[in-house]
Write a protein that binds this DNA or RNA. Structure first.
Lengths: 205, 205
DNA sequence: AAACAATACGAACGATCGTACTATTTGTTT
DNA sequence: AAACAAATAGTACGATCGTTCGTATTGTTT
């Protein structure tokens, strides 16, 4: 996204930003975007509070930057690999299985970053909530669109409402993520089975 | 649970506890069990910080008491009314529809208290997480047991795994709760439809 | 080498956090 | 009325919060 930077000063700043955000997403996935305190982050990274916040201005800007960083990781981990597969059922399954791996492999130590942060800010109006709501909506829409493509490919019954199926499938994923963190070890298998059964129930080919 | 208290001093204390916890569950449903600060709570209720915390000892004890208070509200709002119905499909539907109403009516201003709090503490070991995990497990188990009773009544196919069906159904509920808070107005209808379709797919009678 | 720009630091600000300690008030018991 | 018990209040503590300001460091440009 960013063009190659040759100025060593800007390069240094970008590197610091990267390190800070890399730590921020992990911290926030466990302790939330509120638990993401500037002093704590600076302490863990052995840099000064003032030097850290100078990159973002305010805490809210740091939170928004953290959301963008987490979104980029999610795209790289879950979405990009799936886009290598052809549209339709195969891509849909890759997306869903990729999500389960993203959660169960603990790409973020606190499980899905967005499940954690979205629940934290869902009932609190503001820029942070809006950003999280948009990411969530993008994700659900991607699943629905992929379902629609599978229909166009003749792999899923045309009578199925893509948004409805996407609601069900993403619900399974989120439930597995939460209950795994709460100590249920069987829940990823359950989610996989529910997902498979649900897809088989609407399969055509 | 508590026996009738005649001592006016203890009565006064119980009343204060009740007022504090009544406010605490609402605050925590929006701002989380961390956002539940003693100073804020005392300020909103016009009592002293020291007088408030004297009832609970520490903040963690206040959090645990808040979880117990929220659980009592949940039982009264969702579970008790359903227990008036006969075991089986009827009770199961009442539980699920009662939950959707509990969420959409905003019995807690931040939506489901436990969805909010569970995600907040899911990845943070301690007494608070354990208490939340237990409430969640109780709830899912109740749904699974009610499914099993519906099987015994010949209303649901005996081949169905009650825990698997309970996983699906509770997943729909939680997804509706979150996405409603994030601004999706159609999501309770979607959850209702998914729930109904899922139950019809395993119905016997 | 001098001027400039971006980054990073250190110190301090007022505010709020959870908690502890000491009165004071309110109600009961003798 | 006196002694006691429970609830409530007032004050202060050290720690941490987000933010601001002035200064030093690092790198580039002239």
């Amino acid at each position: 996204m960013d063009q190659q930077v040759t100025d060593g000063r800007l390069r240094r700043g970008d590197q610091t930003r990267r390190v800070v955000l890399g730590r921020a997403v992990d911290v926030a996935s466990v302790d939330g975007l509120d638990g993401l305190s500037i002093g704590r982050l600076a302490g863990e990274l052995d840099i000064s509070k003032s030097g850290l916040i100078a990159h973002f201005g305010t805490k809210e800007e740091l939170q928004l930057a953290t959301i963008r960083a987490a979104r980029a990781i999610f795209v790289t981990t879950v979405i990009q690999p799936a886009l290598a597969h052809p549209p339709g059922n195969e891509r849909l399954r890759t997306l869903l299985e990729g999500w389960l791996a993203y959660s169960s492999d603990r790409r973020f130590p606190g499980g899905c970053f967005f499940a954690r942060a979205s629940h934290e800010y869902a009932a609190r109006p503001g820029a942070v909530r809006d950003a999280l709501a948009q990411v969530d909506e993008e994700w659900v829409r991607l699943i629905a669109e992929t379902v629609a493509q599978a229909q166009e490919a003749g792999e899923i019954e045309p009578s199925v409402d893509p948004a409805q199926l996407a609601f069900d499938l993403t619900a399974f994923l989120d439930a597995a993520n939460l209950r795994s963190l709460l100590g249920d070890d069987s829940v990823y298998e359950r989610a996989y089975r529910s997902m498979r059964d649900r897809l088989e129930s609407v399969a055509l080919s």
